[in-house]
Amino acid sequence: MDAPTIGRIRSAGALFVSLMLFWIMLNGSLASDVLIVGVVASVVIAFLHRDGLSIFAEARFTPASVVATFGYIGYFLKELVKSNLHIAAVVLDPALPVRPGIVRVHTRLRSRTGRLLLANSITLTPGTLTVEMEDEWFYVHWVTMEAADQEEATRQIVAGFESYLEVMYG
């Protein structure tokens, strides 16, 4: 088999596994009728979306990437709380000290899933919002802009998440 076919099979398989996990968690049961419905639905959806992305597609399964995954989740939750408090302070301040701007940042990530997760992480932490993606460039709206310079903005917005995602997805 050629490489694209293998890639498609791997991607569809990864999608099937994620769908089945979701289905079982949602039902909270391993009864055979539940499983049969889940398998049929997951196979059909995985087949229809065999070129699509799923969180396990393109992921690396090495001990280092498992460690990085937990590190990523921890770092993400920390950033989420920190930036929510930051935005809360801005909103409550009578002077409304916003300094918005759209800056350009660069990512070293190569895989599509890695970039997707990076853009999502940037967007999920309030204060930064990915507006547009062009290859390895992200355009990020920043409520309290601290640096217009591309390298400094990249360091502040991207670097933290990227170091984990790089190990997980490359």
């Binding site: 989420l80 929510n84 935005i87 809360a88 909103v91 916003v98 918005p100 759209i102 967007t123 999920l124 932490t125 309030p126 204060g127 930064t128 919002l129 507006v131 709206h141 409520v143």
Partner: peptide, 12 residues
Amino acid sequence: YNRIQTGTKATT
């Protein structure tokens, strides 16, 4: 843009 930031995401 700023409203999207607070309105949809500070709520996460």
